[in-house]
């Protein structure tokens, strides 16, 4: 079975990577850099792909962030649900697709499916075939925005469909959720669909994170920061 690495030494040392098929919630307060944590965990290793569904940051910004951190253009695919509201004529490409708003789950579902199909198709044509289906890190930033637009019940079903697909194909899913904007019920409903949670809190001197649930373990609270390129540095 393929094993994904966090790509962050402190976490890989403690947990030995992420099991394939895992869906992980990143539960963080505002201003803690939740999206940066999610992106860092989504950086594709060699022969992996990253697919991002973004409601908060434009595709161009995400692309820059990944490029700065050494991700190849072909390994990254983005579904952007904000740019189109300002630029209705923005065209779709193989690796970037645009949705008018986070309300449009139908459109998102179709474009995601096409994106995955495109990546799988490409991996089959690759002269050096790797694992099938190709390992994909799928990241949703953020569930909070979706929940502002759509009902919790609908989002539960939507994430359920996605997380089942991730699990079936042995990919990994990362989802950010702001824990201060929603009540405990909302958080626990979403948690039901997850195998693990990266919890973030404000520590004495800096923000701290811990990983709960993956393989039944829990790391201690670990302070973290970002380097100038935005790469996640976890102490411990």
């Amino acid at each position: 079975m393929y094993s994904y690495q966090f790509g962050i030494p402190a976490l890989d040392d403690q947990l030995g990577g992420l099991t394939s098929g895992a869906n992980v919630l990143i539960l963080a307060p505002p201003l803690s850099g939740a999206e940066r944590i999610a992106y860092n965990l989504s950086f594709p290793s060699e022969s992996e792909y990253s697919v991002l569904l973004s409601t908060d940051e434009r595709a161009s910004e995400i692309l820059n962030f990944f490029k700065l951190n050494g991700t190849e253009r072909r390994s990254l695919a983005i579904i952007d649900a904000i740019t189109k509201s300002d630029l209705p004529n923005v065209p779709d490409t193989d690796r970037m697709k645009f949705i008018a708003s986070p309300v449009d789950l139908t459109g998102i579902s179709i474009k995601m499916s096409k994106m995955f199909a495109g990546i799988i198709d490409e991996s089959l044509k690759n002269p050096k075939p790797g694992i099938f289906p190709p390992p994909i890190r799928f990241c949703v930033n953020s569930l909070s925005t979706f929940l502002m637009y759509r009902k919790l019940e609908v989002m539960y079903q939507f994430v359920h469909v996605i997380s089942a697909k991730i699990k079936k194909n042995e990919w990994i899913g990362l989802y950010t959720l702001n824990n201060e904007s929603f009540d405990a019920r909302t958080v626990s409903v979403i948690k039901q669909l997850m195998n693990g949670v990266v919890e973030v809190r404000e520590g004495a001197e800096s923000f701290e994170l811990r990983v709960v649930g993956l393989g039944g373990r829990m790391t201690p609270w670990l302070p973290y920061s970002f380097d100038p390129n935005g790469k996640l540095v976890v102490e411990g």
């Binding site: 509201s85 708003s101 309300v103």
Partner: peptide, 15 residues
Amino acid sequence: APFTSKDAYLNDVAT
């Protein structure tokens, strides 16, 4: 079409 703006919708249909 509550999920989109008129311009974006017409553009989507056209492309």
